[in-house]
C-alpha cells in the first residue's frame, strides 16, 4: 500500500469519479436538499461523516460475513448496519455534541436511505479495498458529494429567478442544471496522479 494509491483513490472519488456526477449515487438528497447553500453544506458534512464511519464498520462486518461464508447476506447486513449506525450517531451527537446535532439534526435520519452510503460499502467490497483504502474512499467520496451539492446549491439559488419555460419548473430545470455541472466535471476525466 502506498500513499500514491491513496491519493489516486481520493482524486478519483472527489473529481474524476464523483459520486453524483459520474456514478449517480445519492441523487435524491442532492436534488432534495439543495435549495439553499448552507443547508446543502450541512447535508454534505453529515454524509461525509456517515460515509467514513460506515466504510470502516462495513469493512469489519464484511470480514465476519466472509469468515462465516455468508457473503450472500451482504446487502441485508450492510443496510441494517447503516441504519443502526445512523441511529447511534444521532444519539451520540445529541448527548456529546449538541451544537453539531442541531446543525445536522434533520439530515441524519435521511442518510439511511442515501444510496451513496450503501453504495460506498458495496463498492469497497467490489474493488477489494483494504481497511485504510476503504475509509479513505468513504471520506473522499463524501467530500466529493459535499463539493457537488455545494456547487449545485449555489447555482440553484440563482436559477430561482431565471426566466425559463413553465414546463421546466421545479425538477426538470434542476436536472438540466446538474447535467451541465456533470458536463463540467467530465473535464476531469482522464486525470491521473501517475499511471499505476
Amino acid at each position: 500500500m502506498s500513499v500514491t494509491r491513496l491519493l489516486a483513490i481520493s482524486l478519483g472519488a472527489i473529481l474524476t469519479n464523483n459520486f453524483i456526477f459520474s456514478q449517480f449515487l445519492g441523487i435524491c438528497p442532492f436534488l432534495g436538499v439543495s435549495k439553499k447553500s448552507d443547508t446543502a453544506v450541512g447535508m454534505g458534512i453529515a454524509v461525509t461523516f456517515v460515509m467514513g464511519i460506515a466504510s470502516a464498520i462495513t469493512f469489519a462486518v464484511n470480514q465476519i460475513l466472509v469468515k462465516l461464508g455468508l457473503e450472500f447476506m451482504q446487502t441485508v447486513a450492510f443496510i441494517l448496519v447503516i441504519a443502526a449506525l445512523v441511529q447511534f450517531i444521532e444519539m451520540f451527537l445529541k448527548k456529546s455534541m449538541p451544537s453539531l446535532y442541531t446543525a445536522l439534526g434533520i439530515y441524519l435520519p435521511l442518510i439511511t436511505t442515501n444510496c451513496a452510503v450503501l453504495g460506498v460499502a458495496l463498492l469497497n467490497v467490489q474493488n477489494e479495498y483494504n481497511f485504510i483504502e476503504s475509509v479513505v474512499y468513504g471520506i473522499t467520496g463524501g467530500l466529493g458529494f459535499l463539493l457537488a451539492i455545494y456547487l449545485f446549491a449555489t447555482v440553484r439559488e440563482r436559477t430561482e429567478f431565471a426566466d425559463y419555460p413553465k414546463s421546466f419548473e421545479g425538477f426538470p430545470i434542476a436536472l438540466i442544471t446538474s447535467g451541465l455541472l456533470a458536463l463540467a466535471f467530465m473535464g476531469f476525466s482522464g486525470l491521473e496522479v501517475w499511471p499505476m
Binding site: 414546463s167 425538477f171 436536472l175 446538474s178
Partner: peptide, 24 residues
C-alpha cells in the same frame, strides 16, 4: 454524450418537463 452521465441528467430533465407540459 447521451450515453454518458450528462445525457442521463439532460434526458430525464427533458422527459419530466414534457410530462409536466402534457399534464398541465
Amino acid at each position: 454524450i447521451l450515453v454518458l452521465p450528462v445525457g442521463g441528467f439532460l434526458c430525464l430533465g427533458a422527459l419530466i418537463a414534457a410530462m409536466q407540459w402534457a399534464l398541465n
